[in-house]
Design a protein around this nucleic acid. Sequence first.
DNA 1: GCCGTTTTCGGCCCGACTGTTTTCAGTCG
Length: 559
Amino acid sequence: MEIAGDDSFRIRSYRNGASTIEGYPERIADILANPEAKITDVPGIGKGLAVVLAEIEKTGSCERRDELLKKFTPAALDFLKIQGLGPKTIATLIEHFQITTIDQLEQLCKDQKLRELPRMGAKLEEKVLRGIAQLREHSGRFLLNFADNAAREIMEHLRALEGLEQIAVAGSLRRGKETIGDVDLLVTGPNAVAALERVATYPRVHEVLGRGANKTSVKLGREGLQVDVRALEHESFGAAMQYFTGSKEHNIALRQRALRLGLTLNEYGLFRLDDNTRVAGETEEGVYKALGLDWIPPELRENQGEIELAEAHQLPVLVEQRDIRGDLHMHTTATDGRATLEEMAEAARALGYEYVAITDHSKALSMAFGLDEKRVTDFAGTVRKINERGELGIRIFSGLECDILKDGTMDIEWDALAELDLVIASVHSHMNLEPAAMTDRLLRTLECPQITALGHPTGRLLLHRDPFPFDFDKVVDEAVKRGVAMEINGSPERLDLSATHVRAAKAKGAKFIVSTDAHHPKHLDNMRYGILTARRGGLVAADILNTYATDRFAKSLRA
DNA sequence: GCCGTTTTCGGCCCGACTGTTTTCAGTCG
């Protein structure tokens, strides 16, 4: 609709509606099917979208969408993913050159044809070429939560089958990697082979790539995420879990170790080289134990020193989700969140948290109606009253996600920040500074004594935008010196810091917060991805401020 | 296309940057 030049307010209505539905607790199909319920009672859904929703429910698409895809080629949606290329330019390009693929667009840029059109020039051609390269580099991979949800969906489908003992996730999804290429599921039990049949019948399977005696491969949904399901003997389950969880580097190191011990390791078990007798394989623990190792958490299996630690019985006791006592980064309807402070607090309480910090945006994010000094001060006062009355059943910390301006100064005066319990400082603009300038900017930010943590410190958006470059070591050193924590932002689009950065920062003595950046109560569940990232980075509970009990945490803020 | 005690029309979020121009359209967040 943007490419077609539709009314921008109508487009916004569609966006709002989509976003509402995405976070809506009930299934839209159920509401439509229920004669007692009215779909237009869902906020943001009026007469027009009600019709569209009914159409989608019935046919899987709607007329307007089909028309647009016909007129502008389905590839137009891919063009929109190219950074720096927006709907207007795309419309012009399609109109003038009748392009229908990214390859054709690339050729146009290489042939310097874009500059023939008004307001387009060499810079744009270069930008588009860069954007295409980046898109290609990331294509074929999926966000962790997307793969996670797909795996849950398929496992649910398989659970209906009788005679299955285990249905388990292996592969990079089990290791909690930030992006996933394909999903590996392992199935055991007397009826395991039937699971290979059943997965191919799942409605959202678009294509069956292969179906053999041990394995079925399918492509799931329009996005084409590949899911491999393997049927295994009970006695091989542990070995298969080990083998298919990887990483490749970890497995190579393990197999080398096995050989040194006169053993051979494969996906069926651990066997003695001389007489082929089975030493282990039913459980993963058994495999590791027979290799003289403690069981290694999947998140650490990258051959980055974890095998040596396991041998010396010195593996860290990695942080677990139940160690987390509160979520420290979330937004409400005061800015761009979808729920009120009370709703977010209640959702956090329901998760068993002891405390929660509300951190709306600051005024530089005007599109989000960010808070100015007055609203910050008022908010801090409101939270003090809420806590005095204790009515929400959970301790609220007043916070702010304060924008870091281009020169590194804070978007909000220090006096106002001092009214708050905690401040997360984040970069949301000017991400293309030279590395030295970005480093100076962040160092200047750290001079502000009110800052609790640096929010999503590298600014990356997975599959979409690379981290902005700066001297990470220098900034972490300064943060450690000033007692500023680094955020592990658990939003699956970010996972920022990355596990690698976490590891590096921990080595420098950094403290962390793990938070969700939730804009909706259900986003609080993304803590799980933040924790996976923390674990991949080797963190223990003591490294993370929001594992502290309320009083200790509150004290750490004043220190 | 949605919404509403300012209610059935008229408003709906906006500043900054880039690259192209010579005053501004397009993109981003």
